[in-house]
Amino acid sequence: MSEALKGKGADNGGTAAGVGGSRSSGSGNGAWQPLIVAFCCNWCSYAGGDLAGTSRLSYPANVRVIRVTCSSRVNPLHVMRAFQRGADGVLIAGCHPGDCHYTSGNYHARRRFSIFARLLEHAGLEPERFQVRWISSSEGDRFAEVMQEMTETIKALGPNERWVDPRWLKIT
């Protein structure tokens, strides 16, 4: 079995707070910390994330980025899977409408995910948990802001307990 870091589990009394924390809030050694999976398009948002780094901006470590070619590459099923596996929030970030590296990909993504967001909401997911944002490669500051905001929003909502697959929790 693989652990993120040996000796960093919540139940072994280590100093690990933050992303090493446990699922249920308040237990163990630190406050619950949300996990946010961010799908970022390679050309704008991922590059914006790089710029945030190059500019030494700071945002919470709760966000983990998956690099995709385009926001239109993200399948709603990827989002579903993230929620089932315990992500507390999912973000999709792409180029600003009109600026897509592939001309029209983010338009497809925009339509696709505005419908999907409604479906998720209809199914009972708090709408704040699933967000779509446009971040350009020159917006390092915006990238950091979006990550900060999203983390705070999810922190206020608490853990995603309803959608996570309990069998998965046992594995981990």
Binding site: A4, L5, G49, D50, G53, A61
Partner: peptide
Amino acid sequence: REHCSWVHRDREEATAKAAA
């Protein structure tokens, strides 16, 4: 680097994220 060590200050958090 750009997505971890340069944007996080806390060593614990950054190390955990790097592992992930």
